[in-house]
């Protein structure tokens, strides 16, 4: 559970091939020439590719890769449902935080009462309005998870790119470091670190930082594997022959071609980091009162789960819903970026 979920994909071959087939090689080549930067697109997913699906399309028009991916994504009802629900959860939680008559930390004049017109999700033993608290928890969870994913993606991509591009010494050093980080359960290290940061005020930021600096290993491996095969391709060779610097080759030619798996993994990292954060908060070592997260709400509601069901059911239900939505979006993105897979399914 603590291990970032490994998407069952053929990212190493399938999706990368899908992203680089067609005229992307040409783009790579022209990208190396400094003389006409306006002539070639910035590379990456916006590059029009002579993809198989593009040629197959009814009018025979070449479509942008982004549009192809988007079209494949929006043809999956589960993924679209997940995306809509996630957006609704995100919007609703911040709107409720602003317009709802109770705030998450306010003590109302009712206590230990079930759902009613005045308190749709009920009230806890102290008198907190549970709807305000759940909304705040969802908001904090999303905020924390997005920051975690950002940190993990930046560290993971950087380390993976350096290891895969320079190989030899850098590769050995960095990948052995990954092995080292993976040698203890991530949750155990988080508990030690969480104990440290749990005393900080407004500590959701620090909670995100400690999860982020531990969650990057899978991305690093993924990017490294992609870079190892990308660097042998002709358009990289061409760019090097034209005198592009290493930095330019990595940033302008290789990274855009590896972006698909990174995005998919970033999405899955958001989901796994919500699991990690809520677990840590449940154990009392993550987000601290008076701030709330769904994990702390479940922890305080667990002792009365059967007698005051609303204290457990609402926070736990929204937590699972939130994670499920993100996993569905991630899975849909993977399918959309991996057309080979879709062919198997049909």
């Amino acid at each position: 559970m603590t291990e970032p979920f490994v998407p069952p994909s053929r990212t190493d071959e399938g999706s990368r091939a899908a992203l680089t087939e067609g005229d992307l090689d040409v783009t790579g080549l022209s990208g190396g020439t400094q003389s006409a930067p306006h002539e070639h697109p910035r590379a990456g997913v916006e590059v029009p590719a002579l993809d198989q699906h593009g040629l197959d399309s009814q009018d025979g028009k070449v479509k942008g890769q982004t549009r192809l991916v988007a079209r494949r994504f929006f043809h999956q009802p589960m993924a679209v449902g997940g995306l809509i629900l996630f957006a609704l959860l995100g919007i609703a939680s911040s709107v409720i935080g602003h317009v709802w008559k109770y705030s998450y930390s306010q003590i109302t004049n009712q206590f230990a009462a079930g759902p009613s017109g005045a308190h749709p999700f009920g009230v806890d033993d102290i008198g907190h309005d549970l709807m305000a608290q759940v909304a705040r928890g969802v908001e904090k969870d999303i905020q924390t998870a997005l920051l975690v994913a950002l940190i993990a993606m930046v560290i993971g991509t950087t380390i993976g790119a350096i290891a895969g591009y320079y190989r030899n010494f850098a590769d050995n050093l960095l990948m052995r470091f990954v092995d080292l980080v993976l040698s203890v359960p991530i949750l155990a290290v988080l508990i030690v670190l969480g104990h440290l940061v749990s005393r900080q005020a407004g500590n959701w930021f620090w909670v995100a930082v400690i999860i982020g600096v531990l969650a990057w290993t899978y991305v690093a491996r993924l990017v490294r594997a992609d870079f190892l095969s990308l660097r042998e391709r002709d358009f990289i060779e061409a760019a090097r022959a034209l005198g592009s610097t290493n930095r330019r080759i990595i940033l302008r030619h290789m990274l855009p071609n590896a972006i698909g798996p990174i995005i998919v993994n970033g999405t899955l990292t958001v989901a796994t980091s919500i699991i990690l954060e809520s677990t840590l908060s449940y154990l009392g070592l993550g987000i601290q009162p008076p701030e709330v997260s769904l994990g702390t709400l479940v922890a305080s509601g667990q002792s009365s789960a059967t007698t005051q069901w609303w204290l457990f059911v609402f926070p736990a239900g929204f937590l699972v819903l939130l994670i499920l939505c993100i996993f569905l979006v991630g899975d849909g993105l993977r399918e959309a970026l991996d057309p080979k897979k879709t062919r198997v399914r049909a």
């Binding site: 559970m1 989901a271 699991i275 809520s278 677990t279 922890a299 937590l319 699972v320 994670i323 996993f327």
Partner: peptide
Amino acid sequence: FLSIPTFV
């Protein structure tokens, strides 16, 4: 099941 945290 992938989406349900252990404690839940």
